[in-house]
Amino acid sequence: MIINHPLLGPRDSEEFVYLGAADLINRPNNWEQDASAEDFYQYQYIRENIAGDHRELWYHEQGDQSWLVVTRNTLSHEIINVELAQDVSRGIGRGK
């Protein structure tokens, strides 16, 4: 499988480590409120089992050590889109 890294171009998936669904970026911010237990439960354990396009986090461990959000079709393994997780995170108003 080839992942088209936004900064480095096409790279073999062997260089990467897979983490899981990109929802992990959306860590709840309300840890001091009562509702947080439920929100953290959802964040930590509840995943959709998607048959189709799935957004997920990959780490370029044997490369530039960047985190990527890769959109992969779980049925065909086709990679549809690759973004820097940093950009995705900033795009939704998280991080610096």
Binding site: L8, R11, D12, E15
Partner: peptide
Amino acid sequence: PIDLSKNVFSVGNVSRTI
């Protein structure tokens, strides 16, 4: 696993890979 063709990985290029 990196493409080392003469005109792709030119003199001065550097990569970290496996």
